[in-house]
């Protein structure tokens, strides 16, 4: 399969993995219910999945663990902005500002 065709297949499958969880219970109505224990456990899935993608993204550079990097400082700035302000733009401005500023300073 060509790259383009496999990409569209990927989109369709991600689309199914997106719409089915959302529409499932709304379409089925009150005919089925999720066991409470499973409901409680599932609440942790989004935070776990997000962190599993973010943390390696920040700490690993070109395959190697590199904890102290401009990316870590940028992450700290973005977290601080998200914690202390409700402005939706600020985390992006703070994070990208620190990342690009530090890279400029370090000459990387």
């Amino acid at each position: 399969m060509s790259y383009d065709a496999s990409l569209w297949l990927t989109f369709i499958l991600i689309g199914l993995a997106t719409t089915l969880p959302r529409a499932g219970f709304i379409v089925l109505g009150n005919r089925v219910a999720l066991p409470p224990v499973l409901q409680r456990a599932l609440r942790y899935a989004p935070a776990a999945a997000l962190a599993a993608i973010i943390v390696p993204d920040v700490l690993v550079t070109a395959g190697d663990l590199e904890i102290f990097s401009p990316k870590l400082a940028a992450t700290a700035a973005a977290i601080a902005a998200a914690l202390w302000s409700r402005n939706p733009w600020l985390p992006f401005i703070a994070g990208m500002g620190v990342l690009l500023g530090l890279r400029q300073l370090l000459g990387a």
Binding site: A51, T75, A82, L83, P88
Partner: peptide, 30 residues
């Protein structure tokens, strides 16, 4: 894109068990 994911994670991780879930998942993935 990474910052966008961080913005989503921050309010979730305010509750302690959520923070634990995030730290364990992030550390393990690394």
């Amino acid at each position: 894109a990474t910052i966008a994911l961080i913005v989503l994670l921050v309010p979730l991780a305010r509750a302690r068990p959520m923070l634990v879930a995030a730290i364990v998942a992030g550390g393990s993935a690394t």
